[in-house]
Amino acid sequence: MADAFRLGFIGAGNMAESISRGVIKAGVLPPSSIRTAHRCPKRRSVFQSFGVQILETNQQVVDDSDIIILSVKPQVVKEVLLELKPFFTEQKLLVSIAAGIKLKALQELSGHKRIIRVMPNTPSAVGEAASVMCTGEMATKIDEERVSSLFKAIGKIWTAEEKYFDAITGLSGSGPAYIYLAIEALADGGVAAGLPRELALGLASQTVLGAAAMVNQTGKHPGQLKDAVASPAGTTIAGIQELEKGAFRSNLISAVVAATKRCRELSQS
């Protein structure tokens, strides 16, 4: 908390809420250092419930913050930034988590060059986000460190060049949905094999969580971990053979590539 700064959110949706809660829980900032504005009383009361300051307008949020996180839907970014353009001074850092809006567009719309773009994903709600950031030309090392501290509070963060962001969206942005499908299918398989639904779903979700933790914590290649489970002529290799018949790996690869392609189309439009 030694490096305290004022954090403002333009857009008080679910992602802003997740980041705020995570930052407070991790002790990165106190609630009094965070502010936002929203027309909806319900959203205002949610943020007030854990100590975030509610201001009347987005202009006030920008004026009263050192770091401003733009967390609105991509289709309203242009309107919002043009409205706030006069309030971005050189002392302020703009952080955008709006999907598909590139640094160049953010600079042109805001008239501001001290910008960092971040792509988080929805598991931020449970503190397990996979986030990636890229920095604009005027962002400083301290800016990077501060933004990194914010997003480490809700998971893990990597740094990458902006040219990779469409593929990042296709993998980690859309990826949770692919895993939800896999969990649902595993649970259905358990039910088909005779398990009660609740038990099957619990086992499926914990198995996926455990397998991901094994990859993250052991540093071993997933193929190596897979080989350790698949004993000769055993149950696991029989299941893997069925997955290979259905092109399981190829389908996941194709899903990431298709989502990347669609993201590229949307960002160009």
Rank of each mutant, 00 (worst) to 15 (best):
T89I: 14
S65T: 11
G189Q: 08
T36P: 00
G190L: 10
L109Q: 13
D166K: 00
G219C: 09
L225A: 03
D63M: 13
I54W: 10
A130F: 11
D188W: 05
V191A: 04
V46Y: 05
S205F: 00
M119L: 15
V126Q: 03
I101Y: 04
E108L: 14
A185L: 10
S71F: 02
V147D: 08
G189E: 04
A98H: 06
L93V: 10
V76T: 14
F165Y: 12
D3Y: 05
A185M: 05
L109E: 14
A228K: 10
A230Q: 08
S96L: 07
Q59I: 02
I116N: 05
S254F: 00
A37R: 10
A247K: 15
S269I: 05
A105S: 15
A259F: 06
I34W: 12
A259G: 04
G246S: 12
N14P: 02
A258G: 01
Q107I: 01
G239F: 06
P74G: 07
L252K: 05
Y164H: 15
G136I: 13
E137I: 15
E184H: 09
K261Y: 13
E144S: 13
E108T: 08
G155C: 05
R264I: 01
K92N: 07
S49L: 06
A200T: 13
A12T: 14
R44D: 13
V61Y: 05
Q48R: 13
I101E: 03
I157R: 09
E108M: 12
Q268W: 00
L181E: 08
S96K: 10
P232K: 00
A238H: 14
I240C: 01
A185S: 15
Q91G: 04
A211S: 15
S65D: 00
A212H: 03
M214K: 02
S124L: 03
R249N: 03
L150S: 08
H112D: 05
E56Q: 15
T89A: 05
S65N: 02
L55C: 04
P222D: 11
V208P: 01
G202H: 08
E184N: 09
A204F: 02
T235F: 09
G13H: 05
S205P: 00
I54V: 15
G223N: 10
V256H: 04
A238E: 15
L195Y: 05
E128Q: 15
I97M: 08
S131Y: 06
E184M: 09
Q224S: 13
M15P: 10
I157H: 03
G219Y: 10
V118Q: 01
I116R: 09
G234T: 07
E242C: 08
L55R: 10
T207H: 07
T36D: 06
S18P: 12
S124T: 03
K245P: 11
V126I: 15
Q107K: 15
G170E: 07
A200W: 10
K73G: 06
K92G: 06
A177C: 06
I168N: 02
A247G: 02
A26G: 11
V76M: 07
K261R: 14
D64T: 12
I168R: 02
K163I: 12
G22Y: 05
P176H: 01
V126K: 00
L150A: 11
D166N: 12
G223W: 01
S231Y: 06
L195G: 12
K104L: 12
R43L: 14
G22P: 12
G22H: 09
S20C: 10
L103A: 04
T159G: 00
K141N: 14
A200Y: 11
P123T: 03
R21Q: 14
